[in-house]
Design a protein around this nucleic acid. Structure first.
Length: 218
DNA sequence: AACTCGGGGCA
DNA sequence: TGCCCAGAGTT
């Protein structure tokens, strides 16, 4: 298991590798951010950005999403996977925002999680990006990178990964940590073909050293 | 813990 | 063609 200074070293290296790491799902207001993150499940952010570009011209408020038939909203996000459930969730979510939150996006993480289609990861992204609340959103990239490097254990749940990171990283760096690990995981420490040969973290990476050894033997 | 939703992008 | 993608809900 890596100690705090080793983790610090890893995060600094990631920052060097991706100096302009930032959330591409950043939007001007919390409501648009929430919709965008909700749409982004199991699909690339490039595709989400393409769809939301037109979507947000047509739909500005929660009311706008409720003023069209479900089929029309589904059609408007058709090019995104899982669009049937996502459209249903968006309409339910907008109904809840109006009925229970005065049409505003709640600023509390636990309140956000009550909304349909909004899990812990989505809620963490919204509170950290839109409201500046320190939070680490653990997605598949963050989870994989944490486990490979040895920041946490292999069998740890997503929640345990989040808790470990919060314990080992200073609070004021939680949000940026999330973005650094995402970029590192997406473009370098990839699920399928990790670039261990040219990785600056190889010397202290548990999984990387194992992989390189296997490669030598074969 | 495993299963399902799902069209687009890329090899 | 086949495989994967800034997940969440249900069983």
């Amino acid at each position: 298991m890596l100690n705090n200074s080793q983790i610090r070293y890893c995060l600094d290296k990631m920052a060097e590798m991706f100096p302009n790491a930032h959330g591409e799902l950043n939007h001007s207001n919390p409501f648009e951010l929430l919709i965008a993150v909700l749409l982004s499940a199991q699909c690339t952010d490039a595709l989400v950005n393409k769809v939301t570009k037109n979507l947000f011209k047509k739909y500005k408020t929660p009311e706008d999403y409720l003023n069209v038939p479900l089929e029309e909203l589904q059609n408007d996000i058709r090019s995104i996977g899982l669009y049937r459930n996502k459209a249903k969730n968006i309409q339910k979510l907008c109904r809840m925002l109006i009925d229970e939150y005065g049409g505003m996006v709640p600023t509390d993480r636990d309140e956000l999680t009550k909304l349909p289609g909004v899990g812990r990861k989505t809620a963490n992204v919204v509170v950290s990006v839109a409201f500046g609340v320190p939070a680490i959103a653990v997605d598949t990239h963050v989870e994989r990178v944490s486990k490979r490097l040895g920041i946490c254990r292999w069998k740890d749940s997503v929640l345990e990964v989040e808790k470990t990171l919060m314990k080992k990283v200073p609070k004021e760096e939680w949000s940026i940590t999330h973005h650094r690990m995402i970029f590192f995981g997406r473009y370098h420490c990839k699920a399928q073909n990790p670039q261990c040969e040219v990785c600056p973290l190889l010397d202290l990476c548990r999984e990387g050293k194992k992989r390189m050894k296997r490669k030598d033997q074969s």
